[in-house]
Amino acid sequence: MALSYKSRKRWSLVVLLIGLPLYIVVAVSVVNWLDRPPILVELLVYIVLGFLWMLPFKFVFLGVGQPDPDADE
């Protein structure tokens, strides 16, 4: 089931305003759980976690910055 442009735009706002801050808290908690690893390992963990959060939501963000294709000219 494909999402309409309006629903993708709304879901992208939900993901960015609610989901992303929650994910940041989880990512920081994971790094703290690792008992303060060396700086390069910590950086690598943040990069990997920063990339992984967007993979499940890729379909939500596709085309959100473009004009509404269903809008009248």
Score class of each variant (00 low, 15 high):
14 V>Q: 05
15 V>C: 06
15 V>P: 04
16 L>F: 02
16 L>I: 02
17 L>G: 12
17 L>E: 07
17 L>I: 08
18 I>Q: 10
18 I>F: 13
18 I>E: 12
19 G>I: 12
19 G>A: 15
19 G>T: 13
20 L>E: 00
20 L>S: 01
20 L>W: 00
20 L>N: 00
21 P>N: 05
21 P>M: 02
21 P>A: 02
22 L>P: 07
22 L>Y: 04
23 Y>H: 06
23 Y>W: 14
23 Y>K: 01
23 Y>V: 00
23 Y>M: 03
24 I>H: 09
24 I>C: 14
25 V>S: 06
25 V>N: 05
25 V>R: 08
25 V>M: 08
26 V>Y: 07
26 V>C: 11
26 V>L: 14
27 A>V: 11
27 A>K: 05
27 A>L: 15
27 A>W: 02
27 A>T: 12
27 A>E: 09
28 V>M: 15
28 V>P: 12
29 S>L: 15
29 S>M: 13
29 S>H: 11
29 S>R: 14
30 V>H: 08
31 V>W: 03
31 V>L: 13
31 V>C: 06
32 N>F: 13
33 W>H: 11
33 W>Q: 08
33 W>F: 15
34 L>F: 13
34 L>C: 13
34 L>A: 15
35 D>S: 11
36 R>G: 08
36 R>H: 10
36 R>A: 11
37 P>I: 07
37 P>H: 04
38 P>T: 06
38 P>A: 08
38 P>W: 02
39 I>H: 07
39 I>G: 09
39 I>N: 13
39 I>M: 11
40 L>M: 10
40 L>C: 05
40 L>E: 14
41 V>W: 10
41 V>S: 13
41 V>F: 11
41 V>Q: 12
42 E>W: 02
42 E>M: 11
43 L>C: 10
44 L>W: 06
44 L>F: 08
44 L>T: 15
45 V>P: 07
45 V>G: 05
45 V>E: 04
46 Y>N: 01
46 Y>L: 05
46 Y>C: 01
47 I>L: 12
47 I>P: 05
48 V>E: 06
48 V>N: 05
48 V>Y: 07
48 V>M: 10
49 L>M: 05
49 L>I: 01
49 L>C: 02
49 L>N: 01
49 L>E: 00
49 L>V: 01
49 L>Y: 00
49 L>S: 01
50 G>K: 04
51 F>A: 14
51 F>I: 15
51 F>K: 12
52 L>R: 02
52 L>T: 05
52 L>I: 05
52 L>W: 02
53 W>R: 00
53 W>G: 01
53 W>C: 00
54 M>H: 01
54 M>W: 00
54 M>F: 00
55 L>M: 10
55 L>A: 07
55 L>C: 04
55 L>V: 10
56 P>Q: 03
57 F>C: 03
58 K>G: 03
58 K>E: 07
58 K>C: 04
58 K>W: 12
59 F>V: 06
59 F>I: 05
60 V>P: 09
60 V>R: 01
60 V>M: 03
61 F>E: 05
61 F>V: 04
63 G>Y: 12
63 G>I: 09
63 G>C: 11
64 V>L: 01
64 V>R: 04
64 V>M: 02
65 G>W: 07
65 G>R: 10
66 Q>Y: 09
66 Q>N: 08
66 Q>D: 15
67 P>V: 09
67 P>Q: 07
